[in-house]
């Protein structure tokens, strides 16, 4: 819909041009209690935030703590909101923006099923070797590869496998951790 132009609307600066969306990886330390994941996911869906990747697992059994790693995209104000809204949840202990600290490692694991014969099969194995993917299951006409790495690397591998007979893949989502001696 076009802006209605009239004298009362023109002497103000136009609405700020949309700031660039950023991609962030957040690490969220939570009590491992029933419903905590639903709180986090409900927050994202209820407030219209994006989830690009989500990984959850208990990390400290004695303290009943889980770590949720969320990759999200949004404008800077939205990213700031996401962090504060997460911190507001009662079972959330800490939220760390791993992208902001700039010193974080991100890895993803994928299990990839490829089906093919003859040259395609040879080529798939050769590429798997180049990407350091391990063969964890094989039949005479298929492989299952296990591949670990950054999201980009896995994406790239999947693109290469597509013409060689990619059947399906299962990915864990991103696990991330900050470099250096300090904990979260």
């Amino acid at each position: 819909m076009n802006m209605t132009v009239n004298p009362t609307t023109t002497h103000y600066p136009a609405a700020p041009v949309d700031e660039r969306e950023q991609r962030r990886t957040l690490s969220v330390l939570v009590d491992n209690e029933p419903g905590v994941l639903a709180r986090v996911i409900g927050l994202f869906s209820g407030r219209g935030y994006n989830i690009d990747s989500l990984t959850v697992s208990e990390t400290e059994h004695e303290k009943h703590l889980s770590r949720i790693t969320i990759a999200t995209t949004g404008k800077p104000m939205v990213i700031e909101q996401i962090k504060h809204q997460l911190e507001r949840l009662v079972p959330v202990h800490r939220v760390v923006d791993l992208t902001e600290s700039g010193r974080a490692l991100e890895r993803e694991l994928a299990l990839i099923k490829v089906r093919g014969k003859g040259d395609n099969r040879v080529e798939a194995l050769r590429l798997a070797d180049a990407f350091r993917a391990r063969v964890i299951d094989a039949t005479t006409e298929s492989f299952i590869f296990e591949l670990t790495g950054k999201t980009d690397k896995i994406d790239q591998f999947l693109i290469l496998m597509e013409p060689l007979g990619l059947i399906e893949c299962s990915r864990t989502g991103i696990a991330a951790i900050a470099r250096g001696p300090e904990g979260m």
């Binding site: 104000m77 700031e80 909101q81 504060h84 809204q85 911190e87 507001r88």
Partner: peptide, 11 residues
């Protein structure tokens, strides 16, 4: 008192 109220609508 609520950090999420800061910069939510207005910087």
């Amino acid at each position: 008192i609520d950090p999420s109220s800061i910069n939510k609508n207005v910087k």
